[in-house]
Design a binder for these strands. Sequence first.
DNA 1: TTTTGTTTGCGTCATAATAACGCATACAGT
DNA 2: ACTGTATGCGTTATTATGACGCAAACAAAA
Lengths: 232, 232
Amino acid sequence: MTAAFSSYQNPSLAVDLVVFGYDKEALSVLLLNRKEAPFKNQWTLPGAFLQLEERFLETCQRILETKLGLTNIYLEQLYSFDEPDRDPRGRVISVAYFALVNPENYQLTAGKMANDVKWFPLADLPSLGFDHAAIVRKSVERLRAKILYHPVGFELLDQDFTLPELHHLFEAVLDTKLDRRNFRRKILDSHIILPTGQKKTGAQNRHPDLYIFNKAIHPNQFNLSITPNSKA
Amino acid sequence: MTAAFSSYQNPSLAVDLVVFGYDKEALSVLLLNRKEAPFKNQWTLPGAFLQLEERFLETCQRILETKLGLTNIYLEQLYSFDEPDRDPRGRVISVAYFALVNPENYQLTAGKMANDVKWFPLADLPSLGFDHAAIVRKSVERLRAKILYHPVGFELLDQDFTLPELHHLFEAVLDTKLDRRNFRRKILDSHIILPTGQKKTGAQNRHPDLYIFNKAIHPNQFNLSITPNSKA
DNA sequence: TTTTGTTTGCGTCATAATAACGCATACAGT
DNA sequence: ACTGTATGCGTTATTATGACGCAAACAAAA
């Protein structure tokens, strides 16, 4: 069935993805170097046009699989962008999703549509095509707000992780220093993680305890009142 | 220009509005009784198809003006809904916005497209056409979360309002009892409202002080940790 | 073996925030 | 003047928070 019952002309509908990754160092975003116009040879977010019978999440999967070689990823709808001139080809509405990925678990494969796929640390993004800079900005904003009161972010780590690793992740995401000991107390009090009883060996110093994410915690009963260190 | 550059067929794009109102009693939603199929004579959210050169907010304004006779309203994008069968006429994506209105300031006018327009208290909604029940559910969720840490909700009151009025509004929005005195303390400490120096006269009892919303407060420095009363 | 440098885990303490609740004042109506 | 009720202000015990000290654990160096 067509959508021609509407007396209006329909804009095109695209789905764009902000894929966040964390490599034990910085928070990064996955960008794609375009092989075709518009914005040929420029970096943009991975995206695709919505097919008529497709749900947003299916479009997301399609992008992740065919363009990036990723599957089974945390996805969340971010916002829909509607600037009339955001795409030089004409009117395109973009529904943006953001994804959280542990880069170690996946092998990036630049699909045939792209010259290259690469992780860019948030602090070091190239200039982006379309309005994708605004989309990234808004998704960072959302992620930073959300991680404080929702159990999210663990998708960026290994299944088993240490408290110092989680601590460093939070500092990277929030771009701030957090007192190590207060962070530990708040996380443990929240019961959002469970000790595995094992320790992560191999490090030069004291071996930290390993934890896993506690899926039994209800999102609504989770709230960290994380405050940056006052001292630089 | 058409959007035919895309090799895909485009779904229709609609904007639907969840208009919240508060009548000193309960939180209400504005519903529209449809004059035409589908869902003829049933209640739905006000909405319209997006015109090709139109921005979402412009569609919102158009709906508010032509269908409801409202202007200059607080609007915020809620979410985009994509269930393939949400509209029996075919594939229609809906971008939902929610609005906050003080019903006293406006005269409702059911446009020619509708049989009737009416406020429905949240606790007493009729069954809704399309997937509009889900849209309302999500927008209530959003409003309840947002009012706790963002200076929002004052749009539902008169320009000048009393603290007991604000207190009752919060109880209505959150659907819970809040300790009157603790609520007062937190609101005043937040500086989100400013005393006008005047009192609201006419009541049978002690005349409460009047306040106005303090627009100078930056949203990020506003946070109420409001807790329901433990005692019923 | 001992020492060194560093990280991890646990604990302390002063201060701030919070929930629960008491009480006098200001009204209009009686 | 009295009554009933809502408003405004205040108190207190408890909890949460920020800042920070310290010993144990580890690998590598001495």
